[in-house]
Amino acid sequence: MEGELFLLKDAKGRAFLIHLKEGGVFHHHRGTVPHEEIRKAGPGGRVWTHLGEELSVHHPTLEEYLLHMRRSATPTYPKDASAMVTLLDLAPGMRVLEAGTGSGGLTLFLARAVGPTGLVESYEKRPQHLAQAEANVKAFWQVENVRFHLQSLEEAQLERESFHGVALDLMEPWKVLAKATEALKPDRFLVAYLPNITQVLELVQRVEGLPLKLERVLEVAWREWEIRLPVAHPRFQQVGHTAFLVVFRKWKDC
């Protein structure tokens, strides 16, 4: 029971991530529920607070976990993280290089994509962020396929052409571009996550002279709808722009 993860949802769809503890109690504004009752109900079950509020019990999905986990840095949104996995064309058994780790949201998507036989090498130079990311990843994903490095990628010693993909979530990714490119296998992908178009233009300019070809620059749209039969309309609150994804493919060195 100790440390088990559950997600509770109330009648209004509000979600609450719970780490179970012996003798623990969940506090909702409409009452309390002992952790033991949550464990007994199990995923797909229901519990009630002492004031009669009904809560559904679930194992959190990766998307739900990322949105509700503790964070020390702004997380990569699930829509962008899942797109990055696709753009990197990751599969079980592959090795992927990540910098920076942030709160570990993208790390989880990468780790699950490459599976138990793959490996994620994740670099983060800020100790507080790395500690939180490591705790977040280990709480959700017990597979030992992530190596965390408290280090800037600029200082790292990387084997040449040893990674199937590179994911960069850095304010100035051009500072590590040459090193990351050298570590990437030919005909594989480097994807950068950048909040503003000025960073995108700077990155594309800095690629000159490296064996990288710009494949595309895109934003990921995610538009949810509210369904209340017989009425349907887009939700009034939407996640708009989060980041640009910049995709490069590596050429063979001539």
Score class of each variant (00 low, 15 high):
Ala113His: 09
Glu36Phe: 08
Phe189Ile: 00
Pro211Phe: 08
Leu67Pro: 01
Glu54Asp: 08
Glu154Pro: 01
Thr117Cys: 01
Glu37His: 12
Lys179Arg: 15
Ala192Met: 10
Glu159His: 05
Ala139Lys: 12
Leu119Gln: 15
Arg30His: 12
Phe248Thr: 03
Gln199Leu: 13
Ala232Gly: 00
Val25Thr: 14
Leu190Asp: 04
Gly240Asp: 11
Glu36Cys: 01
Arg30Val: 07
Ala183Lys: 05
Glu182Gln: 14
Thr242Trp: 05
Phe163Tyr: 15
Ser152Thr: 09
His27Val: 14
Ser103Trp: 03
Glu226Ala: 06
Val217Asn: 03
Phe148Lys: 11
Ser122Leu: 08
His233Leu: 02
Gly52Trp: 10
Glu37Gly: 01
Glu172Tyr: 11
Arg216His: 10
Arg147Asp: 04
Gln157Ile: 07
Ala243Gly: 12
Asp10Glu: 13
Arg160Tyr: 12
Thr86Leu: 14
Val33Phe: 09
His35Thr: 06
Met84Arg: 03
Lys79Phe: 06
Thr86Gln: 13
His59Lys: 15
Lys21His: 14
Ala131Ser: 14
Glu182Leu: 14
Met84Pro: 00
Val47Trp: 09
Arg249Trp: 09
Gln199Thr: 10
Ala81Tyr: 03
Leu194His: 06
Lys138Val: 08
Ala73Ile: 12
Val25Gln: 10
Gly104Lys: 07
Ile38Thr: 08
Gly23Ser: 11
Met69Ile: 05
Thr74Lys: 12
Val176Asn: 02
Pro211Lys: 10
Gln128Lys: 13
Pro43Leu: 07
Val220Pro: 00
Val191Asp: 02
Arg216Lys: 15
Glu154Arg: 12
His28Val: 10
Ile18His: 02
Lys179Tyr: 09
Leu210Ala: 08
Val191Cys: 11
Gly105Ile: 02
His68Lys: 14
Glu226Pro: 00
Phe148Glu: 09
